[in-house]
């Protein structure tokens, strides 16, 4: 998939179980062509992280993942000096070695602990680097990433510059909980992932729950869309649709009627107030057409 067209990328992604829409496929394609990082934003659970994983599967590259959180720093993201090993080296070679030798030696690559970013850069094989939930970190960390993202290199004061030998595909995801800096955005391609269209979501659900009959899948996606259109604190994501589909399979449900819905509703709605609202609006709607039919 390293060469080729947008359509081929899309196909390759579909081949590993990720149904990308046009923009997602195009941006993935451009990311490889232009060697630019991709910034993926969108509501929770629309498959942002999954896109990176799918890319790694489709390209046969290893996935290096950096999960961001508040207080994440260089030492955990890039590299750290192996303090203990350095001490050992000093103690072991204290008698014969000259101090200069030791000094040079303990700040060499042997004493470096590679963290995800460093790993991605130094890897001899090209990788997919996933920087997950970048919005959870603070701005300082973003600034630190800039060098990596634009030049694919890391500067270590004691060692000098380490340049990437192979170009990683970099995917950054963000839940949009914080506005990212302009500098970071400028270096990335931007992709907004949203809830999919009815047809596409149905395909996704059926891909992940192949035993689900088509009529039921359609019904499920329709109900999910109905739920999403309500004013909820946390609308159900694609991941939750899939979970729900699997639950329905386990329950052996043949149709989504009011009863099955109330029983399994907690899979897709996860706030107390939301549950009340959904039960009130959707539950009743589900009851009606059935009565009309029978």
């Amino acid at each position: 998939m390293d060469n080729g067209s947008v359509a081929e990328v899309k196909e390759a992604l579909a081949g590993v179980g990720y149904l990308a829409d046009e923009p997602a496929a195009l941006v993935s394609f451009l990311a490889q062509k232009l060697d630019k990082p991709v910034l993926v934003e969108g509501p929770a659970g629309v498959g942002k992280t999954e896109l990176a994983k799918a890319l790694s599967r489709a390209t046969g590259r290893e996935l290096v993942r950096l999960q961001c959180y508040e207080g994440l720093d260089e030492a955990k993201a890039m590299y750290e000096w192996n303090y203990r090993k350095q001490l050992l080296r000093i103690q072991a070679g204290g008698s014969q070695g000259e101090w200069e030798d030791v000094q040079d030696d303990i700040f060499s690559a042997d004493f470096l602990l590679e963290r995800p970013l460093m790993q991605a850069i130094a890897s001899p094989e090209p990788v997919v680097l996933l920087i997950d939930e970048i919005d959870k970190t603070d701005q300082e960390f973003e600034a630190m990433l800039l060098e990596l993202l634009s030049d694919f290199q890391i500067t270590i004061p004691e060692l000098g510059r380490i340049e990437a030998t192979t170009m990683p595909i970099v995917v950054l995801t963000s839940n949009d909980s914080r506005e990212l800096t302009e500098a970071l955005k400028r270096r990335c391609l931007y992709l907004w992932l949203d809830y999919p269209e009815l047809e596409r979501e149905m395909e996704i659900v059926r891909l992940h729950a192949p035993d689900l009959p088509e009529t039921l899948a359609r019904r499920l996606v329709e109900v999910i869309r109905m739920v999403r259109s309500l004013d909820l604190k946390k609308p159900p994501s694609i991941a939750e649709s899939i979970d729900w589909a699997r639950t329905l399979l386990l329950m052996g449900a043949e149709d989504i009627d009011q009863e099955t819905f109330t029983q399994s509703m907690s899979i897709i709605v996860k706030h107390r107030t939301d549950i009340d609202l959904v039960a009130e609006r959707v539950g009743v709607k589900l009851a009606d057409p059935l009565r009309a039919e029978s």
Binding site: V6, P23, L26, V27, E41, D176, Y190, L191, W192
Partner: peptide, 17 residues
């Protein structure tokens, strides 16, 4: 494709989009 390629490189937020 033309539009998406432009959007991916130029519009870097939902509002911009």
């Amino acid at each position: 494709d033309f539009r998406e390629a432009l959007a991916a490189t130029i519009a870097k937020s939902q509002d911009d989009r």
